[in-house]
Write a protein that binds this DNA or RNA. Structure first.
Lengths: 343, 343
DNA sequence: TTGTAAGCGTTATCAA
DNA sequence: TTGATAACGCTTACAA
């Protein structure tokens, strides 16, 4: 790495003191117009890059914010942080992105790293709703917006899409189409989204007078593979239920739903003729699947926008005011649910 | 933000000097085992988070690396930086992610920000192959691995998937299936990937004795929308060509191909009966589209893995050795190409 | 309008 | 084995 050009070098060359350079570079009106211009010119000539570390160390302004998610590859999250990144870029902030992979230890490491890095704030989709990790954030008084779940702490900002309502919407649509035995391919059991989703599933079923069967509720990782494996086991008789025990499948994520499409190919069943399927998230590709996936839309762009605006507002106004935003999901009817007549 | 706990606070409480604390925290064997343990204990009690800014300022080791891409939301890139992030996390590095949106000015800003942030190295998919931006990187002697294109500078590390070969593979497959009039929905004209891809397209056509028609070559943004718009214009007679002028479409990206699927829905044509389609990248969802998309696979995981390993190697060994890796794409035949008999 | 000096939280060197 | 001190590059009073 080449030795860095600092304000001292510029000062020396310009024949002024380094604090004058500092002021000139910040366009402090106190400095003479001529010297200001000259110093800017020299800085440019010398390829001067201000050292954010030094700046941050002194002023506590690092112009950096952290994003901590459980799966940065997921199209769901990437749509969210895309808009966050755009806003940040416009405001001169940089974004540190971390993946917790649904792991509390990793999440803890990510949080402490963020603190060590001196971020001005974070947006986090936490692994759990009441872990010690959240306490770390609270203790440190780190400016934070939670997304995708609602931690069980009152003094917290969040932007949340109502997963319970989403599950309710899905169950309702399935029931309207004659389904009663609905296999739920949920996310990991420890994940709060899974719990909210489960709650919506159960309550809607109960409200409709349909018996809840525990064997139809599965907690799996959010991936094509785990979804596929689950169905394989069922089809190959390695499971407590058989392929006759349900007529519809709903999932916590479109990615899991895609796993069902893969299973359909491998196990030779038809969607929606053999099983109706409803996903969740409404990621880009779902519209073009065969058949187009009926799913529950999450307002991802708004989640991103609201969360970053909330965070920036807190940072800029040093505000302590709590903001809680709950967004509603929306049913998108396409072609993966079929009306059936029960005997 | 709460006032930070520093080694000075710990030192005071422990009744030792702060430099002893520093050594103890780094497990320097020179310090007495008892004091070492005591200091670690206190640090933990006090919620001490080492200040990376100060550390970086002093030691030049920020444990941070930067990733600069043209579209962080793209499933293609996200698969790449997912593996990069995993490796980084394991090694105690953090990742700054920036989006250049195919814009040279934004890219420049991203690069200078990275430098200002004191990253130890960057992985970049540059907008162009010979911009001043690359010169900035070279001038600063910033440790860098280029991906997804090959800048026209000799002293550079890269991991590149041969786009020319990819286009060639696509054209070949189309020709084998009887197609001669192949609409190319390429990326932005200024993008080097587009140029490589174009070259492969043209050379394969030429080698096969097929006339190259310039009207069949289109440079568009990599998005569903622009792809859709292009086809709409053609269908609505707002273009120099008509819908009869081609029998197949190939694209620089699966995302563009998805735009064709959208167009098929809106404009009521059938894939592959009316048009054969070949994509590029092989992103997750393509396998489940209707019909499953025939595409050219890019080894994304390997691109990520090789590039981060290359970079880390450079950083850790302070090596100046140049490494150039070229990976080969691979044709994935699925259902979106149909054999036709020309009259 | 410009310069001086202290300090941010570390690391690293040298002395005790 | 521990402590004092300078330095990293910047911001920010305060003095000139």
């Amino acid at each position: 790495m080449k030795k860095n050009v600092t304000i001292k070098h510029i000062a020396e060359y310009a024949g002024v003191s380094f604090s004058t350079v500092a002021k000139a570079l910040r366009n402090d009106p106190v400095v003479n117009e001529k010297t200001r211009v000259k110093i800017h010119y020299i800085a440019r000539e010398f390829n001067y890059y201000p050292n954010i570390l030094a700046k941050g160390l002194r002023s506590k302004k690092t112009k950096t914010i952290g994003i901590i998610l459980n799966d940065i590859q997921s199209p769901f999250y990437s749509e969210i942080y895309k808009v966050i990144g755009d806003v940040l870029n416009k405001q001169g902030y940089t974004m540190i992105l971390c993946d917790s992979s649904f792991d509390l230890e990793l999440e803890k490491k990510n949080i402490t790293t963020m603190i060590s890095q001196g971020v001005e704030g974070i947006i986090i989709s936490s692994v759990s709703e009441k872990s010690d990790n959240i306490q770390i954030i609270l203790d440190y008084d780190l400016k934070t917006v939670f997304i995708d779940n609602i931690p069980e702490f009152s003094n917290i900002n969040y932007v949340y899409v109502n997963h319970e309502e989403a599950a309710s919407l899905a169950v309702e649509h399935l029931i309207e189409n004659g389904h009663r035995d609905i296999l739920l391919l949920n996310g990991p059991e420890g994940l709060s989204s899974s719990q909210h989703f489960l709650k919506g599933y159960m309550e809607k079923l109960r409200a409709s007078g349909i018996e809840i069967k525990n064997e139809l509720i599965r907690f799996i990782g959010i991936s094509v593979e785990e979804s596929l494996d689950t169905l394989k086991n069922i089809f190959f008789g390695k499971d407590s239920i058989t392929k006759k025990d349900f007529t519809a499948i709903m999932t916590l994520s479109d990615v899991i739903a895609i796993g069902i499409y893969e299973a359909a190919q491998q196990l030779q069943f038809a969607i929606p003729d053999d099983y109706s399927v409803i996903g969740y998230d409404n990621i880009l590709a779902t519209k073009y699947l065969a058949p187009p996936l009926t799913t529950i839309h999450q307002p991802k762009k708004r989640t991103g926008l609201y969360s970053i605006n909330l965070l920036l507002e807190q940072i800029n106004n040093d505000s302590k005011e709590l903001k809680k935003i709950i967004l509603s999901p929306e049913l998108i009817v396409r072609g993966s649910v079929k009306k059936i007549n029960r005997c």
